[in-house]
Design a protein around this nucleic acid. Sequence first.
DNA 1: TGCAATCCGGACTGATAAGGTCCCCTTTAA
DNA 2: TTAAAGGGGACCTTATCAGTCCGGATTGCA
Lengths: 148, 148
Amino acid sequence: MLRVSKFTDYAVVVLSRLEAEGGVQTAPGLAAGTGIAEPTVAKVLKMLSQAGVVEGLRGARGGYRLLRPLASLGLSEVIVAMDGPIALTACVDGGFGFCEAEQTCPVRGRWDPVNAAIRGALSAIMVSEIASPMPARRAVPQPVLAAE
Amino acid sequence: MLRVSKFTDYAVVVLSRLEAEGGVQTAPGLAAGTGIAEPTVAKVLKMLSQAGVVEGLRGARGGYRLLRPLASLGLSEVIVAMDGPIALTACVDGGFGFCEAEQTCPVRGRWDPVNAAIRGALSAIMVSEIASPMPARRAVPQPVLAAE
DNA sequence: TGCAATCCGGACTGATAAGGTCCCCTTTAA
DNA sequence: TTAAAGGGGACCTTATCAGTCCGGATTGCA
């Protein structure tokens, strides 16, 4: 199945919670609020922090806060932060030297428009379109996963 | 990484070869022509046959032939045939009962527009746009894979 | 009528990556 | 000074993918 990682799903949930609460929230607090295991939430927030989506405030009374409203945060940014660059195959954006059949490969460079189409489709969707509205509190872990 | 399986990649190559040769081709013949291992080619063709993209002709002098020109074959059809339905998560097209947090899930049903956007983007691309043009013969296996 | 070529369907196994947890260090407010 | 919190990385487990193989069914040809 064409899919994104679970972390992307988690990230949307955590971001949604973060915006609903507002201000600075701690990782343990968000874990309790979302029902996702605390180490996992911490990992998600670390990745989002590195991507510049949230800001981590260290020290006692620290936590995380949103740097941008979810309405202006493209879903593709979250996917890139969690899953890496959006590219259906490795033969993309110029050769990486991975492909042994580079000289004779009939689809060489041909996946580019496909990736561009995917990127375009995902960039047009904001996280807020997926995340809202949210109840005050969730109980169970969040297996919004790809089963197939 | 957001990616498709290698089989999708193989399928495009095999279909490209099939159209270039024309008529009925055997699995071993296509394996030799593409450089992909024969059991793998056979598996790909079986899946494409089940999807109605190619037709399998049994018996001596059997083989496979295209049912439609690649110019009218959407890439999404190939992806669906190889990877299953295009859905970034399982919480799609109505509940499957997989999700324990179904009642409280804040993103419940929200991935639908995302999946629809992806499907739309992929449906607009024809296999022929990726597959052509092709040399007469290829030598090396075809690791056009997702390496991250 | 038998034989050989070919597809059909599924089962099996190894490799790869994802998912998740834990640890120690740094930072900072009380 | 201490405790609360994030930062960074290593680690292990498990699921899924990729690839192979086998027996059976079907059909053309000698």
